[in-house]
Write a protein that binds this DNA or RNA. Structure first.
Lengths: 191, 191, 191, 191
DNA sequence: CATGAATGAGGATTCATTCAT
DNA sequence: GATGAATGAATCCTCATTCAT
């Protein structure tokens, strides 16, 4: 199938999907709701995405790419390791705070069975640079002696927890973002 | 008088739900699949759970209760703080490893819109004891000066990440469970 | 099947059926609603009535019998024809006003396909006396020269219309009952 | 652009509904039977009528409109009052005889709880002209001194009874239609 | 290509009836 | 006989996808 005409329309559909998925849950949202919100006809959705599964996978990939861009595009290649991770951490949280719907949808998609392994791999590709830095840190004994993917998982888990804390409406004013990163760094840095 | 409602049947339905939800995803499993797996008629499911939503909420609560029991029933009330948290951490991970399906389903339910606030609250009730210990640690300056719910979130986030790492089939033999706890403790303990 | 034990229970079921049918419509009322209102178990209903259809037919018959009793038990066998019909007319309307639910249900059952011809015939049996008087009136040229069943239909149609008028909440105070009978009598009496 | 919604298909569904409702009763006919008879897919019914309730209400309204058209479209505005009512009466009965199924269905719908007040009002709107004539007759002392709606109810009640008599298969050859109107007129005309 | 009506398999639930207790 | 849990066919409706316009 040739590339469909309008990139705008494709994006409108993806945006509508985010909005609807966030509001009603991924598997409770009919494609008709998405097309309506996107302002296109029901059938049009299927000229841009062959099926709902495809749409969902592409959306996941798109969100990952956007997040990766937010996190990595200003990556301070020359800073210290700590600064590199801190920078990425902060970009992550800022993006998450700026895009709560996208964040919520990513959370739902992450645990979904309909996201293929291929999509998942594509989604983590842009973070290769960060992985390399992690490996370096392990090698240089800056980090504890654990596989990078494990350390990456810690990073993610803590970031998500921090995000959730930031999202709470208790407004205690605490700077969870910085606190969260401290937990991460103290946790994985070799004592 | 009359057949009494059977706890066995209720459990069979919940077990079947776990099995099917893990295999096909919560919102892709028809109630008919659950009843078939449970060995009851389609209608019987609805004498035990008024609707699929109710079933899903009760299942979430039941899983939480089971997990809480695994984590807290052998809580070492007289041990040191570190030992208390370590114990709970290990019980958590052991339960998770022993019940991967339940774990997977909990992961899906946690992000679901259909789980009510009430259910969520009921699910976290059994961990009150742990919260208290956390507060104590903050007060005694064992932990960094952050709200307990934030520290609890860190605990959870790291535990989940560790679980995921344990579930990976790379079988590197690394003891992720212990390593994960070390990250947690170093992270939240006052340096 | 032997006569079931308790006549009371049978009546409770019929009464409950009237109440529920009036409130929710005959075919929107589950048998379970009837048994609940009657204060008996779901299954018990079926020891008194073999099926819902049977229940509905017996109810129709019972209502007809009750109405017939109200109309005919004080039938003034020695009065003039006009007085006879007027008496029956008034009894009819009084019964209808006194039992609006029963009346409503009869209205629904009358047009229902599930009422058998046999039931309908049984329902009109108690009015034989009145039919005879009608025939007499035709023969004696008190009524216009039409078949009695046609005149009976007029009687019924006008009585129902009068009932509906009485049920309206406009409360104009008009004596519809008497006015309705006058319309009937003028209409069918030979001028 | 796109297939336009077809009035034909809508009518086919309404016609099928009449046929099936007449044969099996309104609440015993599955929507699937209607769509099959109409020659459309099960789902198509719901693009024309949002629910069975909506279909039933629209059907009632459509039947009323059709009947009103039959009765009122040739209304002899310049004839005498008696002729006006006689005309409408005859049109009513002719329509009823010509469309026994529609008539039967209207009878069932009239007593149904699912017909909304709004639908009922819309259904009686086209008869305003006749109501006015009735009021005129009361004012000019052609009719007895009763509210028009009461006289209207008599008209209806008698017409229905006459219809039922006409529908009986005794084929006595009696001209019930004319006889019925005579009953009406004698009944309501001031003696 | 865009549109939205048409399709029909699938799904949650209901409910008359049966039957174990 | 009474009870109410168990049954599963039947029902209304949804929705991903197709296709005529």
């Amino acid at each position: 199938m040739a590339r469909p005409r309008s990139e705008d329309k494709r994006n409108a559909i993806l945006d509508a999907a985010i909005e609807e998925f966030a509001a009603r849950g991924v598997w409770s949202t009919p494609t008709a709701a998405i097309s309506r919100t996107a302002g296109v006809a029901e059938g049009t959705l299927f000229t841009y995405f062959a099926s709902k599964d495809v749409l969902v996978n592409e959306l996941y990939r798109a969100l990952k790419v956007e997040l990766a861009d937010a996190m990595m595009s200003t990556y301070p290649a020359k800073a210290s390791s700590r600064e590199k991770f801190a920078h990425v951490w902060m970009q992550y949280l800022q993006w998450a705070m700026a895009h709560p719907l996208k964040c919520k949808v990513m959370g739902q998609l992450r645990v979904s069975d309909r996201i293929t392994t291929e999509t998942r791999e594509a989604g983590s590709a842009p973070f290769a640079e960060l992985l390399r830095e992690g490996e370096e840190c392990v090698r240089r004994k800056v980090f504890v002696d654990q596989p990078v993917h494990f350390i990456g998982a810690m990073f993610n888990g803590l970031a998500e927890a921090t995000m959730a804390a930031l999202a709470e409406p208790d407004g205690s004013g605490t700077d969870y973002a910085a606190a969260g990163f401290d937990v991460f760094w103290r946790g994985v840095a070799r004592p």
